[in-house]
């Protein structure tokens, strides 16, 4: 069982959350010329590291906020969590 610290509510069990995937992918800027390659990279390509991974989680059975988690994909250790507009401390 993962224990995830929601930046709004504090530590809660994994059962309260749902996952939103890689937090580093950025949608190409609206209103600007987007190359096919940028678009394909955004939709389909991921870094998929073994180790530290920035990812989105949703406190769906709680405050319903989205936030960021820095987690190790091999050990599941959670290094830090923060709000969407913040950066990790570690």
């Amino acid at each position: 069982m993962l224990e995830i610290k929601c930046p709004y509510c504090g530590k809660r069990s994994q059962n309260e959350f749902s996952y939103g995937g890689d937090a580093t992918i950025k949608r190409p800027q609206l209103g600007e010329e987007i190359s096919t390659e940028d678009w394909d990279n955004f939709v389909y390509y991921r870094d998929n590291p073994r180790g530290k991974h920035s990812e989105l989680w949703h406190h769906v059975s709680g405050c319903r906020q989205w936030f960021k988690v820095s987690r190790d994909t091999a050990t599941h250790e959670i290094f830090d969590t923060c709000k969407m507009n913040e950066d990790f401390n570690v």
Binding site: M1, Q14, D22, N48, R71, T73, A74, T75, H76
Partner: peptide, 13 residues
């Protein structure tokens, strides 16, 4: 399990 993982073991939930 529902989140990226390279661990060859899963979680109870």
């Amino acid at each position: 399990d529902g989140y990226n993982s390279y661990a060859q073991r899963g979680n109870m939930p």
